[in-house]
């Protein structure tokens, strides 16, 4: 079975929101659009987004760390939002594990949003249907695109490559190796939703230097005798 997913490296994310704008641009004009806005140039602008970047401050000054946290649908392997849908508009694709909403079947009852512990679904205030990240299904499942472009818009936009995309069920994929080797974790594991998306934790890069590496034990100068000390004026001091 295939389960496509994102792996987001919190150690690399700089919180530039490029994934947010790229996602909005691609999806508002594509298959899953429009992602409507309300008062976009006014006070209190609001609208539908598939992807948000939040910022958290961890610790107490001066020992603080700023963590930028991109937040989009996790495409759970046990999605709690799917079985509660009364119409079957919400479904999980068999072939690649992406959780999608059929806008033509959705009645806008919002029950699926209640059933998502992460708050990843948003009701479109104009179209009155539930919207959520599609993992850019119209890119990743589009065979007419060159292979390198069959990735979600957010992944292609990320300037620091903080977002990896691939099949988390394939043990040899880039994402599986990143999860395995760099401590990838899931959000709210306590609910058994088995999110497919993983996050890579912040990692401290420390260089370990030993004393003998700073001062070379085999320094050839050390083996010579002390340099001769000054013993009065030499010929160089007096001649001009």
């Amino acid at each position: 079975m295939t389960q496509m997913a994102l792996v987001i490296d919190l150690n690399v994310c700089v919180g530039c929101h490029a994934c947010v704008t790229s996602c909005k641009e691609w999806n508002t004009s594509g298959w899953a659009g429009p992602l409507t806005d309300h008062r976009p140039y006014d006070k209190d602008p609001t609208g539908t987004f598939f992807n948000r970047v939040q910022t958290f401050e961890v610790g107490e000054f001066p020992r603080t760390e700023t963590v930028h946290f991109p937040k989009s649908c996790l495409h759970c392997e046990e999605p709690p939002c799917v079985p509660v849908c009364p119409t079957g508009a919400s479904y999980k694709r068999e072939d690649n594990g992406v959780v999608l909403v059929d806008y033509d079947k959705c009645i806008g009852c919002k029950y699926c949003s209640w059933a998502c512990p992460y708050g990843m679904r948003e009701l479109d205030e104009y179209q009155k249907v539930m919207k959520k990240c599609t993992l850019c299904i119209d890119r990743i499942a589009n065979d007419t695109l060159p292979e390198a472009e069959r990735k979600p818009a957010c992944v292609l936009a990320c300037p620091t490559s903080a977002r990896l995309f691939g099949d988390v069920h394939d043990p040899d994929s880039e994402v599986s190796m990143a999860i395995r080797e760099q401590g990838g974790y899931q959000l709210m594991p306590e609910w058994g939703t088995k999110p497919a998306n993983h996050y890579l934790p912040r990692r401290k890069t420390r260089i370990q230097i030993f004393e003998d590496e700073l001062e070379r034990a085999d320094n050839p100068l050390k083996k010579e005798a002390p340099l001769p000390a000054a013993e009065g004026e030499t010929l160089d001091d007096v001649s001009f």
């Binding site: 929101h17 947010v20 008062r39 006070k43 209190d44 602008p45 609001t46 609208g47 539908t48 987004f49 948000r52 970047v53 939040q54 910022t55 958290f56 401050e57 961890v58 610790g59 107490e60 700023t66 937040k71 949003s113 679904r121 948003e122 009701l123 205030e125």
Partner: peptide, 16 residues
């Protein structure tokens, strides 16, 4: 970490 404080929700005008 016991002390985590949110600084931004990703928007200013509220959302669903």
């Amino acid at each position: 970490h016991n002390q985590i404080e949110q600084k931004s929700q990703g928007f200013m005008g509220g959302s669903f």
